[in-house]
Amino acid sequence: MSEWIDLTQTLAEDSPTLPPLHPKPEFEAYATLDEDDYNSTLLHLETHCGTHMDAPTHFLSKDEHRTIDEITVDEMVTEGVICDFSHKDPGSGVSREELADQAERYDLSAGDYLIFDCGMAPADTDHYLRNFVYPEAEAAEYMVEQDIACFAIDALSADRPGAELAEHHVHYTLLPEDILIIEGVANLQAVSPGRYDVIATPIPYENRDGSQIRLLVRPQG
């Protein structure tokens, strides 16, 4: 049986976060082995840092759309396709045609996770923070037409770098259709394009907009 591959960032106080407003994680010792005979840590952690999942309520009303604790087990243990866009120039968009070419090659199907490999590795660099590859609006519309369950990307945002909130076309196209979004995927250099078994496990924060996840994939066949 093939081994599972972990596509999750390790979170630390220096983990990169989307500029300019998103805070860094903070870890504070609540108890220590030396003083209390056990270790315990307090976290100050935005739901949208590291490898994380956006619930529809990240951009939409909780009265009408799902929160992160409503994601089902069937959505966490599933299948998907990894597409390779690591050859794209930094800051450029993936077109509908470019996406369709790979999606059809790897038999992207309804209910799949779609994972973009844009050649990104988590780092405090201009390339990672402000110059990443992203899907164009028409590519997001194609995802809706294909009825995918989740779109994942190794950039810190699914939308164009520096986009104003009103210009977050990918979020505003996918989330109203109950298509989940995962950002901050890591370790994609360890995989090749193709079909995979997928495990993605968000933390069920009650009535919240997202959470960190553990993202694992395993090649099929």
Rank of each mutant, 00 (worst) to 15 (best):
S86P: 11
I181T: 05
Y134V: 08
F27M: 11
Q220L: 10
A137T: 12
S40T: 11
A103Q: 10
A55L: 07
P56K: 07
I82K: 07
R195T: 07
T47Y: 13
G111Y: 08
E13C: 05
T125E: 09
D154R: 00
E167D: 15
H44V: 07
V144R: 01
G93M: 13
L215I: 06
C118T: 15
I182Y: 09
F132H: 09
D34L: 08
D69P: 10
A166W: 12
F85G: 13
L33H: 11
S92Y: 02
L43P: 05
D84F: 06
I213A: 09
Q220E: 15
L42M: 13
E35C: 07
S61H: 05
P23L: 00
G119A: 12
I182V: 15
I179Q: 06
E164Q: 12
E26Q: 10
A152V: 01
R195K: 05
Y30H: 15
Q9S: 01
H58Q: 05
Y142R: 01
A139I: 06
W4K: 03
D101F: 08
N39F: 10
H44L: 11
L180F: 05
V170K: 01
Y113R: 01
M120F: 11
E98C: 08
Y128I: 08
F27L: 11
S2K: 15
E141C: 03
Q102P: 13
P204C: 06
K24E: 14
E46V: 09
Y30N: 14
E3Y: 11
H168P: 05
M120K: 10
S92V: 00
G184P: 06
I213D: 02
A158F: 03
G221D: 15
G111C: 13
A155R: 03
E79F: 05
E145M: 09
S211E: 08
Q220T: 08
D147H: 09
V81M: 11
L215T: 01
T17D: 13
A200E: 06
I203H: 14
L114K: 00
I148C: 10
Y205G: 11
P19E: 11
P176Q: 05
E26C: 07
R105T: 15
F116H: 04
Q146F: 04
I82P: 09
T173I: 03
H127P: 00
E35H: 15
L216P: 02
I82H: 01
L156V: 04
E206Y: 00
A158C: 11
R105A: 14
E75F: 03
A12I: 00
A155N: 12
P176K: 05
A200F: 02
P202S: 12
L114N: 08
